[in-house]
Nucleic acid binder design. Structure first.
Length: 136
DNA sequence: TTTCTTACA
DNA sequence: TGTAAGTA
C-alpha cells in the first residue's frame, strides 16, 4: 500500500496548511500542542504537514465549529485502545449488565455524528450521555 | 519572507 | 485566540 506512504508524506509548511484549512498558524500549532496532530519537522525545525495531517485538521476544524472543545475532540479523534474494544465484546457476550451503553459504543456514535452523517433522532439520546465525555 | 518559540492581553 | 518580539 504505497498510497499510505503518499498520504503520510510530509510536504507543506504551515503557510500552505493555513490556506488549505482556513485555520490560523496559532490554531494549528495549538492543536499540535494538544497532540491532535504531529507534523514532521525539517532540519531547520520547520513543521511539515502531510495530506493526512491536513485532513485531520479539517476534521478538527469541523468539530470546533460544532462547539466541541479540545477534550472532546481528543475523545473523538484519539484512537480507541484495543482493550476497550475487547471490553465491549466481553460486555456484549456476558448477558449481564447489557442495559447501559458502553463507553466505546457511545464513542462510536459520537464520532459518527460529530464527523458528519448522524441520524438526528439519535442526537437527543446522545446529548444526554454527552456529559460523560465533554464534561470539564 | 516565512516560520519558530515564548509570553502577554 | 490574537499579536508582539527576537531568531533562524
Amino acid at each position: 500500500m504505497t498510497d499510505e506512504i503518499r498520504r503520510n508524506m510530509a510536504l507543506f509548511p504551515i503557510g500552505i496548511v493555513m490556506k488549505l484549512t482556513d485555520l490560523t498558524a496559532r490554531q494549528i500549532r495549538y492543536y499540535e500542542q494538544h497532540e491532535l496532530i504531529i507534523p514532521a519537522r525539517t532540519g531547520g525545525n520547520q513543521r511539515l504537514y502531510s495530506f493526512n495531517d491536513v485532513e485531520r485538521l479539517l476534521e478538527i476544524k469541523d468539530l470546533i465549529e460544532k462547539g466541541v472543545n479540545i477534550a472532546g475532540i481528543k475523545q473523538v479523534l484519539l484512537p480507541v485502545s484495543k482493550d476497550s474494544e475487547e471490553a465491549t465484546v466481553l460486555n456484549e457476550q456476558s448477558e449481564v449488565k447489557r442495559r447501559e451503553l458502553t463507553d466505546t459504543q457511545l464513542h462510536r456514535m459520537l464520532k459518527q455524528q460529530l464527523l458528519g452523517g448522524g441520524k438526528r433522532g439519535q442526537v437527543s439520546l446522545i446529548q444526554g450521555e454527552l456529559s460523560r465525555f465533554f464534561k470539564k
